[in-house]
Design a protein around this nucleic acid. Sequence first.
DNA 1: TGTACATCAGTGAACGCGCGTTCACTGATGTAC
DNA 2: TGTACATCAGTGAACGCGCGTTCACTGATGTAC
Lengths: 228, 228
Amino acid sequence: MSESGPMTGTRAESGALTGTRAARAAETEVALKEAAIRVFGRVGYLRAKITDITAEAGRAAGSFYSHFDSKEQLLEALLVDMLEAGDRSAEQSGHNPDFSDFEAVRWHIAQLWALLTTNGAVIVALQQAAIVNEHFARRQQELMAPMFEDMAAHLDYVTAAGGHLPGDRMAVATAMVMLMSQYAYAWLEGWPQSSGPRPTADEAVDMLASFILNGIMGPIPPSRAATS
Amino acid sequence: MSESGPMTGTRAESGALTGTRAARAAETEVALKEAAIRVFGRVGYLRAKITDITAEAGRAAGSFYSHFDSKEQLLEALLVDMLEAGDRSAEQSGHNPDFSDFEAVRWHIAQLWALLTTNGAVIVALQQAAIVNEHFARRQQELMAPMFEDMAAHLDYVTAAGGHLPGDRMAVATAMVMLMSQYAYAWLEGWPQSSGPRPTADEAVDMLASFILNGIMGPIPPSRAATS
DNA sequence: TGTACATCAGTGAACGCGCGTTCACTGATGTAC
DNA sequence: TGTACATCAGTGAACGCGCGTTCACTGATGTAC
């Protein structure tokens, strides 16, 4: 027994390139996806070359096509992964839909913030892909539509609580989503570059929550705004 | 005198392709720029091919390079045109910087709205170019930086008037710019597509003005919000 | 005013670069007997 | 358990498409004398 069996020995020694065929293929697919996310984050989806991704994953160029038909299909796969993970985490949370309440607004913003910071590369990739590709333009709409509807529904609580929306409920919902997502994007990009230290994530979420609650309802009591 | 002179006759007859050499070249350059704006508006900057632009302008492909070194340099020229026009119109307007006043806020939003609707194609082209090109990423920052600074300065009037900003002045200024520009973009794109009629430009500007004034200060008197 | 030549805006076919995609090949894994 | 063959993940050089860019050419405009 000074030598292990030929197969098991080979497996243990050559690391990532061993295992059953199926396992090895699955490993490579995951490696390609993870590499893609890193490359997208570094140079953006539109500038990312197939060979950038395979190089980042430590594979040959041709290997890519054993797993994906194209860069588009890879992005689609990443989107599916993201949405599955999102569905799983969304199930458990019974949330408060009453947007006349500061904590409810803040909770929703924090949720969106978490989504953007954990899946930033994929979401920004989708945004970029939507610019040059009809399919992803539609996909982006499909992702945003429920957000608009969701926000609009939450705004009805504001009206019910005697708040005075600044305009049409759908227009206000659209403005809210645009504000949240774009401010988050600017924050991730480090805008504006000129001035002092950028806010922490918590400060940013607080600011947005106060801004939006004031915007849709009127000022919140200073005590709550200061302590949250 | 039954025949006009050979040159003047030729000029009058063959329309756009006549005149002095310099004039003819200038005409073509203008035609290419205008064609580019139309093509950018239709398919976007990133998808626009040089031959799309020359075809739209009714010229041969090679003609492009008598006037511009590349698509990038053409966009740069369009930006310069836009900024020159912007400077000219900005000079004449003595504006009210006091953002505790509804009309001042509304006026600024209307200004930005006008800028985006008249130069939408070029501004969106810049946004797209900034994604894949370092030069235009910097150019975009240069264009936005004064807006952030300007808004932040205006916000100081809010604090002076006893208003309570929802966060750091620069963060709030950033949020305002993001809200205005992105809502305008969404409006131009017809988002959200699902629901009923989108607001008119005036309604959109009113909504943004109320949203922002509430957001940065507290609610405006209902009478003013309703009448403006 | 007329002629001969120079210049230049514009033309469009051809060229060539960059990058996505293919494919003959390798060596390890899986299967049959 | 051992041998012979089949299958398949992965390789990387080569291919080829799309589009930016060039360039020899045309015909009109400008200049010289």
